[in-house]
Simulated scan of single mutants.
Amino acid sequence: MAKEIESPCASICRLKGELCIGCGRTVDEIRLWRAMKRPEKMKTVKRAAERLKKLPRD
């Protein structure tokens, strides 16, 4: 059986517009996380990581 994809949640839940600056996911991605299949979770984690790299540090 395939290993479960861990949520990228960093327990720093702060939204900046539609984006969480803690994990890099959009509000919709956070809301839909539990219903996502493994491939979509993998894509979401990758997109979230890329978004975090682009966020300016306060």
Rank of each mutant, 00 (worst) to 15 (best):
R47N: 09
T26N: 02
K3Y: 10
E29S: 04
C9F: 06
I21G: 03
R47T: 11
C20T: 04
C13I: 03
L32E: 14
T26G: 01
K3S: 10
E50Q: 15
I30W: 04
C9R: 00
R51A: 10
S11T: 11
M36C: 08
A2D: 14
R31N: 08
R34S: 12
E50S: 15
D28F: 01
M1D: 11
R25P: 07
W33C: 15
L19A: 01
G22L: 00
R34E: 13
C23K: 03
I30N: 07
G24M: 04
R31Q: 11
P39F: 13
A48V: 01
A10N: 04
G24V: 08
G22C: 03
A49M: 09
T26W: 05
P8C: 11
K3R: 13
A2F: 08
K54M: 15
A48C: 00
R14W: 01
V45H: 03
E40R: 12
E4M: 09
R31L: 06
A48M: 04
A49G: 10
T44K: 08
E4N: 09
R57T: 15
G24P: 08
A49P: 07
K46V: 15
T26Y: 03
S7L: 02
R31H: 05
E6I: 07
K54R: 15
D58P: 14
R51E: 09
I21L: 03
C23L: 01
I5V: 15
R57V: 11
K54Y: 07
I12Q: 07
P56E: 14
L52K: 14
A10C: 06
D28V: 00
M42C: 07
S7P: 07
D28C: 04
K41I: 04
P56N: 13
K41W: 01
K16M: 06
C23T: 02
E50D: 15
E40Y: 03
